[in-house]
Amino acid sequence: MTATTTLPAIELKSVGKTFRVSGGLLGKDRRVVAVDGVSFAVPPGGVLGVVGESGCGKSTLARLILGLLTPDSGDIAVEGQRIVDMDRKARARLIQPVFQDPFSSLNPLTRIRDIVAMPLQAQGSFSRAEIAKRVDEMLERVGLPGEMGNRLPAELSGGQRQRVAIARALVLRPRIVVCDEPTSALDVSVQAQILNLLAELRRDLGLTYLFISHNLAVVEHVASEVAVMYLGRIVEKKPTQALFHQPEHPYTKALLASVLTPEPGLGVPDVGLGDVMPDPANIPPGCRFHPRCPIAEPRCSTETPPLRPRPGGGVECLLVP
């Protein structure tokens, strides 16, 4: 075997996932399209930033990559192995999540140090002393030293809890970390400390990140490439600088134009997307963005935009050359 080709750390090929939901008050069951024909590869040590509309499928994508959900179609491989074929312990050593809202599912009577110890305990191969040592190191590293480990989740602020989630994800020293809005609960200074820490760990340990965030400045800072999702599809993907400085898809442009910079008196811009949000159970024909696109043409509602390749990715819009 030669090592001339490096396997991507994460690779997706035409991955799709839908959910069936009861029609509720209207009766009929409906299928919600969460992820639709998504393909990409993240090289080892890379950071893929994922941004997009609330509800467009980012967290579903994260859960698919973590093996917490099974795709309806397509393939997902992590370091060359199909994620669905791996056993849970091996998977946990390779890839770990940092979720938004990690504590809604936790026992409120579990102390912080025990929460962080869970992944080590689940492996069943670490001694008590080793677990205690690793947990202390990790808590120190995320800025929760000493007595903090003995507190209960309710005794920490939202920001402090997010640090616990990061400590828990990194305590097994995984190679790939899937971060779903890891710093959205933090103030800018603590956020910077955490992101600088994640960057440092990536350099030291050669980690690969999938990084989901609504904060575009953060994504610009941490990501090497950025994917923009809209209604389950990646509509634009590029190296970070290109995406921020030469955005091509009208949705990407709208996102960038909606960012609120800290300049008093400018108010909240209206970027012309209208107030009608997309319905994932009823994907529009043609270009799925056409009902809201400020520059849509008649053919946009019938023709499906092809992928126009770009270095490091591509764009799906009929009006770009």
Binding site: G52, E53, H214, L260, D270, V271, D275
Partner: peptide, 13 residues
Amino acid sequence: TALDVTVQAQILR
């Protein structure tokens, strides 16, 4: 905080 910036703008308005 859990919203993308276009929806955020809509809610703030």
